[in-house]
């Protein structure tokens, strides 16, 4: 399995874009060459392309529809993507739109990806509607696999209620993801915890690696007080 093509899929709002952005910034700090592909054809706001300028400054390339088209709600898939997948010598992060509908855009790269190999993660937040328990999560997983024509080979546990997340909530949500992992024998690659919450809690109880997440997709009123 190739480690340098990482695909993020999952339900709407499960945290794919934040994870991809965080991963890209971590990798660039290690001097790796990083490319993010924004494959989101379903969300109109909060897409990784909104971070394009900031990421560019850090040396991360974002592949997304150019110029004004980036602000449109049309299912544009950049012709650059195929070439980027075939390149080597870089870490490629594919940020896919939510649900099976969003994953459909992946199917067009099936012929390339089946040869290159890939890591495809299902990002799970059990506090989102339609992925609240293992039955729902398994349905989501199957629907995404069918529509993308690709196989999910890892789970990312991202249990959170935004700013109201606490240890009890993470523990309860993470257990749901672990149960799914046991049922279908797929590894939980890591547990994602937002930084401010991470700093406050005792995390020794978790067996999986913890991925400390920073929130980059902010709301207009989140502007920090000076």
């Amino acid at each position: 399995m190739k480690d340098d093509i990482v695909i993020y899929t999952g339900s709407f709002g499960s945290g794919k874009t934040e994870l991809a952005i965080n991963q890209s910034i971590k990798a660039i700090k290690k001097k790796e060459k990083v490319v993010i592909v924004d494959l989101d054809i379903v969300n109109p706001y909060f897409r990784s392309r909104e971070m394009r300028e900031k990421l560019k400054e850090l040396g991360i390339k974002v592949v997304a529809p150019p110029g004004k088209f980036a602000m449109a709600d049309i299912p544009l898939i950049s012709p650059e993507i195929k070439g980027t997948i075939q390149d080597s010598d870089r870490l490629l992060l594919l940020d896919v739109g939510g649900d099976d509908v969003g994953a459909k855009s992946l199917a067009s790269f099936y012929t390339v990806l089946k040869d290159t190999g890939y890591q495809m993660n299902l990002v799970i937040n059990p506090y989102r509607p339609f992925t609240k328990n293992s039955a729902e999560i398994l349905t989501m997983l199957r629907e995404i696999e069918i529509s993308s024509r690709l196989k999910i080979n890892g789970l990312i546990s991202n249990p959170n209620l935004g700013s109201q997340t606490d240890l009890e909530l993470i523990t309860r949500g993470h257990k749901i993801v672990k149960d799914v992992s046991k049922q279908i024998n797929l590894p939980v690659k890591y547990l994602a915890i937002e930084q401010t919450i991470y700093e406050k809690i005792d995390k020794h109880q978790f067996e999986e690696p913890i991925f400390v997440l920073q929130r980059y997709m902010k709301l207009p009123w989140d502007e920090k007080n000076k």
Binding site: F12, G13, N125, Y127, R128, P129, K132, N160, L161, G162, Q164
Partner: peptide, 12 residues
């Protein structure tokens, strides 16, 4: 509590 998008929340 559930984490919801505004549009989903109206529906529910």
């Amino acid at each position: 509590k559930v984490l919801m998008k505004g549009n989903e929340a109206i529906g529910e």
